[in-house]
Protein backbone atom coordinates (compact mmCIF):
# COMPACT_ATOMS: atom_id res chain seq x y z
CA UNK A 1 0.00 0.00 0.00
CA UNK A 2 2.72 2.42 0.94
CA UNK A 3 4.33 1.71 -2.41
CA UNK A 4 1.14 2.79 -4.11
CA UNK A 5 1.51 6.14 -2.42
CA UNK A 6 5.08 6.70 -3.56
CA UNK A 7 4.59 9.91 -5.48
CA UNK A 8 8.11 11.01 -6.14
CA UNK A 9 8.26 13.61 -3.38
CA UNK A 10 10.71 15.93 -5.15
CA UNK A 11 7.85 16.87 -7.39
CA UNK A 12 5.93 18.45 -4.57
CA UNK A 13 6.58 21.40 -2.31
CA UNK A 14 6.28 19.45 0.88
CA UNK A 15 4.87 16.07 1.71
CA UNK A 16 2.43 15.88 4.61
CA UNK A 17 3.94 14.37 7.73
CA UNK A 18 2.37 11.44 9.51
CA UNK A 19 1.28 13.64 12.42
CA UNK A 20 -0.41 16.07 10.04
CA UNK A 21 -2.20 13.25 8.41
CA UNK A 22 -3.57 12.24 11.77
CA UNK A 23 -4.45 9.10 9.99
CA UNK A 24 -5.23 5.68 11.27
CA UNK A 25 -2.64 3.10 10.34
CA UNK A 26 -3.08 1.51 6.95
CA UNK A 27 -5.31 -1.54 7.07
CA UNK A 28 -5.86 -4.50 4.83
CA UNK A 29 -9.26 -3.07 3.95
CA UNK A 30 -7.58 0.10 2.70
CA UNK A 31 -5.20 -1.91 0.63
CA UNK A 32 -8.00 -3.89 -0.97
CA UNK A 33 -9.91 -0.74 -1.83
CA UNK A 34 -6.88 1.03 -3.24
CA UNK A 35 -6.12 -2.07 -5.28
CA UNK A 36 -9.67 -2.08 -6.57
CA UNK A 37 -9.20 1.58 -7.47
CA UNK A 38 -6.03 0.61 -9.34
CA UNK A 39 -7.96 -2.08 -11.20
CA UNK A 40 -10.66 0.42 -12.06
CA UNK A 41 -7.93 2.74 -13.32
CA UNK A 42 -6.50 0.01 -15.54
CA UNK A 43 -9.96 -0.61 -17.01
CA UNK A 44 -10.70 3.07 -17.53
CA UNK A 45 -10.25 3.92 -21.21
CA UNK A 46 -10.15 7.66 -20.68
CA UNK A 47 -7.45 7.22 -18.03
CA UNK A 48 -5.46 5.02 -20.40
CA UNK A 49 -5.76 7.71 -23.04
CA UNK A 50 -4.54 10.29 -20.55
CA UNK A 51 -1.56 8.14 -19.64
CA UNK A 52 -0.67 8.10 -23.34
CA UNK A 53 -1.00 11.87 -23.46
CA UNK A 54 1.29 12.17 -20.48
CA UNK A 55 3.87 10.01 -22.22
CA UNK A 56 3.66 12.31 -25.23
CA UNK A 57 3.99 15.38 -23.02
CA UNK A 58 7.12 13.83 -21.55
CA UNK A 59 8.47 13.77 -25.13
CA UNK A 60 7.58 17.45 -25.59
CA UNK A 61 4.25 17.08 -27.40
CA UNK A 62 2.37 20.35 -26.95
CA UNK A 63 -0.83 18.99 -28.46
CA UNK A 64 -1.04 16.27 -25.80
CA UNK A 65 -0.36 18.91 -23.16
CA UNK A 66 -3.33 20.94 -24.41
CA UNK A 67 -5.56 17.86 -24.36
CA UNK A 68 -4.76 17.32 -20.70
CA UNK A 69 -5.19 21.02 -20.00
CA UNK A 70 -8.62 21.08 -21.64
CA UNK A 71 -9.75 18.09 -19.65
CA UNK A 72 -8.42 18.95 -16.21
CA UNK A 73 -7.77 22.66 -15.83
CA UNK A 74 -11.32 23.40 -14.74
CA UNK A 75 -11.30 20.76 -12.02
CA UNK A 76 -7.82 21.60 -10.77
CA UNK A 77 -8.66 25.29 -10.67
CA UNK A 78 -11.95 24.71 -8.83
CA UNK A 79 -10.22 22.46 -6.31
CA UNK A 80 -7.47 25.03 -5.74
CA UNK A 81 -10.09 27.70 -5.18
CA UNK A 82 -11.98 25.45 -2.78
CA UNK A 83 -8.78 24.98 -0.80
CA UNK A 84 -7.60 28.57 -0.82
CA UNK A 85 -10.74 30.70 -1.09
CA UNK A 86 -8.84 33.09 -3.35
CA UNK A 87 -9.31 33.40 -7.07
CA UNK A 88 -5.84 34.88 -7.61
CA UNK A 89 -4.10 32.17 -5.62
CA UNK A 90 -6.16 29.46 -7.31
CA UNK A 91 -4.93 30.77 -10.66
CA UNK A 92 -1.34 30.75 -9.49
CA UNK A 93 -1.66 27.20 -8.19
CA UNK A 94 -3.31 26.06 -11.44
CA UNK A 95 -0.57 27.62 -13.50
CA UNK A 96 2.17 26.09 -11.37
CA UNK A 97 0.41 22.74 -11.51
CA UNK A 98 0.37 22.68 -15.30
CA UNK A 99 3.91 24.00 -15.47
CA UNK A 100 4.97 20.96 -13.47
CA UNK A 101 2.92 18.77 -15.73
CA UNK A 102 4.81 20.18 -18.72
CA UNK A 103 8.23 19.96 -17.14
CA UNK A 104 7.95 16.74 -15.16
CA UNK A 105 5.50 14.56 -17.07
CA UNK A 106 8.27 12.00 -17.42
CA UNK A 107 8.22 11.43 -13.68
CA UNK A 108 4.63 10.24 -13.63
CA UNK A 109 4.31 6.62 -12.59
CA UNK A 110 1.17 4.99 -13.94
CA UNK A 111 -0.17 3.65 -10.67
CA UNK A 112 -3.12 6.01 -10.53
CA UNK A 113 -5.00 8.23 -12.94
CA UNK A 114 -3.18 11.25 -14.32
CA UNK A 115 -6.00 13.35 -12.87
CA UNK A 116 -5.20 11.98 -9.41
CA UNK A 117 -1.58 12.94 -10.00
CA UNK A 118 -2.59 16.47 -11.01
CA UNK A 119 -4.88 16.90 -8.02
CA UNK A 120 -2.10 15.76 -5.76
CA UNK A 121 0.23 18.37 -7.18
CA UNK A 122 -2.48 21.02 -6.77
CA UNK A 123 -3.20 19.88 -3.23
CA UNK A 124 0.44 20.07 -2.19
CA UNK A 125 0.82 23.50 -3.74
CA UNK A 126 -2.31 24.70 -1.93
CA UNK A 127 -1.18 23.23 1.38
CA UNK A 128 2.14 24.96 0.94
CA UNK A 129 0.38 28.28 0.40
CA UNK A 130 -1.84 27.76 3.43
CA UNK A 131 1.23 27.04 5.54
CA UNK A 132 2.90 30.23 4.27
CA UNK A 133 -0.31 32.10 5.08
CA UNK A 134 -0.15 30.88 8.65
CA UNK A 135 3.47 31.98 8.82
CA UNK A 136 2.38 35.41 7.61
CA UNK A 137 4.12 35.49 4.26
CA UNK A 138 0.87 35.34 2.28
CA UNK A 139 -2.36 37.26 2.88
CA UNK A 140 -5.63 35.63 3.85
CA UNK A 141 -7.77 35.09 0.83
CA UNK A 142 -11.48 34.54 1.24
CA UNK A 143 -13.22 36.16 -1.68
CA UNK A 144 -16.94 36.00 -1.57
CA UNK A 145 -18.58 38.63 -3.70
CA UNK A 146 -16.92 38.04 -7.06
CA UNK A 147 -17.12 34.32 -6.74
CA UNK A 148 -20.86 34.20 -6.35
CA UNK A 149 -21.64 35.65 -9.75
CA UNK A 150 -22.21 32.31 -11.40
CA UNK A 151 -24.45 30.97 -8.67
CA UNK A 152 -27.64 29.50 -9.96
CA UNK A 153 -30.45 31.67 -8.73
CA UNK A 154 -32.90 28.86 -9.39
CA UNK A 155 -31.69 26.87 -6.40
CA UNK A 156 -30.30 29.26 -3.83
CA UNK A 157 -29.71 32.96 -3.61
CA UNK A 158 -26.35 34.66 -3.40
CA UNK A 159 -26.45 34.91 0.36
CA UNK A 160 -26.82 31.16 0.72
CA UNK A 161 -23.91 30.69 -1.63
CA UNK A 162 -21.72 32.95 0.47
CA UNK A 163 -22.63 31.18 3.68
CA UNK A 164 -21.84 27.82 2.17
CA UNK A 165 -18.54 29.15 0.92
CA UNK A 166 -17.71 30.49 4.35
CA UNK A 167 -18.68 27.22 6.00
CA UNK A 168 -16.35 25.40 3.62
CA UNK A 169 -13.51 27.78 4.37
CA UNK A 170 -14.08 27.29 8.09
CA UNK A 171 -13.34 23.59 7.79
CA UNK A 172 -9.86 22.39 8.73
CA UNK A 173 -7.83 22.28 5.54
CA UNK A 174 -7.63 18.49 5.25
CA UNK A 175 -11.37 18.14 5.72
CA UNK A 176 -11.86 20.86 3.14
CA UNK A 177 -9.58 19.00 0.75
CA UNK A 178 -11.50 15.77 1.30
CA UNK A 179 -14.87 17.41 0.61
CA UNK A 180 -13.42 19.29 -2.35
CA UNK A 181 -12.11 16.16 -3.99
CA UNK A 182 -15.02 13.82 -3.26
CA UNK A 183 -18.07 16.05 -3.36
CA UNK A 184 -17.00 18.71 -5.84
CA UNK A 185 -14.55 16.88 -8.11
CA UNK A 186 -16.30 13.52 -7.93
CA UNK A 187 -13.24 11.46 -7.00
CA UNK A 188 -13.82 8.15 -5.31
CA UNK A 189 -12.77 7.83 -1.69
CA UNK A 190 -9.80 5.69 -2.72
CA UNK A 191 -8.65 8.24 -5.32
CA UNK A 192 -9.03 11.12 -2.86
CA UNK A 193 -7.01 9.15 -0.31
CA UNK A 194 -4.24 8.78 -2.89
CA UNK A 195 -4.30 12.50 -3.59
CA UNK A 196 -4.00 13.34 0.11
CA UNK A 197 -1.46 10.61 0.75
CA UNK A 198 -3.47 8.94 3.48
CA UNK A 199 -5.35 5.69 3.96
CA UNK A 200 -8.92 5.30 2.77
CA UNK A 201 -10.29 5.01 6.31
CA UNK A 202 -8.50 8.19 7.32
CA UNK A 203 -10.02 9.90 4.31
CA UNK A 204 -13.46 8.66 5.27
CA UNK A 205 -12.94 9.93 8.79
CA UNK A 206 -12.14 13.36 7.35
CA UNK A 207 -15.25 13.22 5.17
CA UNK A 208 -17.52 12.23 8.06
CA UNK A 209 -16.20 15.00 10.31
CA UNK A 210 -16.45 17.54 7.51
CA UNK A 211 -20.07 16.65 6.71
CA UNK A 212 -21.04 16.75 10.38
CA UNK A 213 -19.51 20.19 10.84
CA UNK A 214 -21.09 21.50 7.65
CA UNK A 215 -24.48 20.12 8.65
CA UNK A 216 -24.25 21.91 12.00
CA UNK A 217 -23.08 25.17 10.46
CA UNK A 218 -25.64 25.13 7.70
CA UNK A 219 -28.54 23.78 9.78
CA UNK A 220 -30.17 27.18 9.97
CA UNK A 221 -29.90 27.61 6.25
CA UNK A 222 -31.42 24.22 5.65
CA UNK A 223 -34.31 24.97 8.00
CA UNK A 224 -35.06 28.35 6.44
CA UNK A 225 -34.77 26.83 3.03
CA UNK A 226 -37.30 24.19 3.98
CA UNK A 227 -39.71 26.89 5.17
CA UNK A 228 -39.57 28.67 1.84
CA UNK A 229 -42.19 27.56 -0.70
Amino acid sequence: MADVLMWQPWLFPRAATQSERGAAPVRAEDEARVNSAAEAFAADDSATEEVRWLELVAQGDEQAYRQLMNRHLRGVHAFAYRMLGSRAEAEEVSQECFLRLWKHAGRYVARAKPSTWLYRIAHNLAIDRLRRRREGSLPEGLEEAAASERQSALVHDRQVSRQVERALQDLPERQRAAIGLVHYQGLSNAEAALVLGIGVRALESLLARARRQLREQLAELATSDRREP
Partner: peptide, 23 residues
Protein backbone atom coordinates in the same frame (compact mmCIF):
# COMPACT_ATOMS: atom_id res chain seq x y z
CA UNK B 1 -30.28 18.62 1.80
CA UNK B 2 -26.66 19.13 2.84
CA UNK B 3 -25.45 17.95 -0.57
CA UNK B 4 -27.79 20.44 -2.27
CA UNK B 5 -26.49 23.24 -0.05
CA UNK B 6 -22.91 22.31 -0.88
CA UNK B 7 -23.83 22.48 -4.53
CA UNK B 8 -24.91 26.06 -3.90
CA UNK B 9 -21.29 27.03 -3.37
CA UNK B 10 -20.14 29.22 -6.24
CA UNK B 11 -18.82 27.48 -9.29
CA UNK B 12 -15.42 28.87 -10.10
CA UNK B 13 -14.32 28.79 -13.70
CA UNK B 14 -10.82 29.61 -14.91
CA UNK B 15 -10.58 32.98 -16.64
CA UNK B 16 -9.76 33.31 -20.33
CA UNK B 17 -6.48 34.98 -19.37
CA UNK B 18 -5.52 31.99 -17.21
CA UNK B 19 -6.43 29.61 -20.03
CA UNK B 20 -4.21 31.44 -22.48
CA UNK B 21 -1.35 31.71 -19.98
CA UNK B 22 -1.40 28.00 -19.27
CA UNK B 23 -1.79 27.14 -22.94
Amino acid sequence: ELAALLDAAPEILPSAALLSRIA
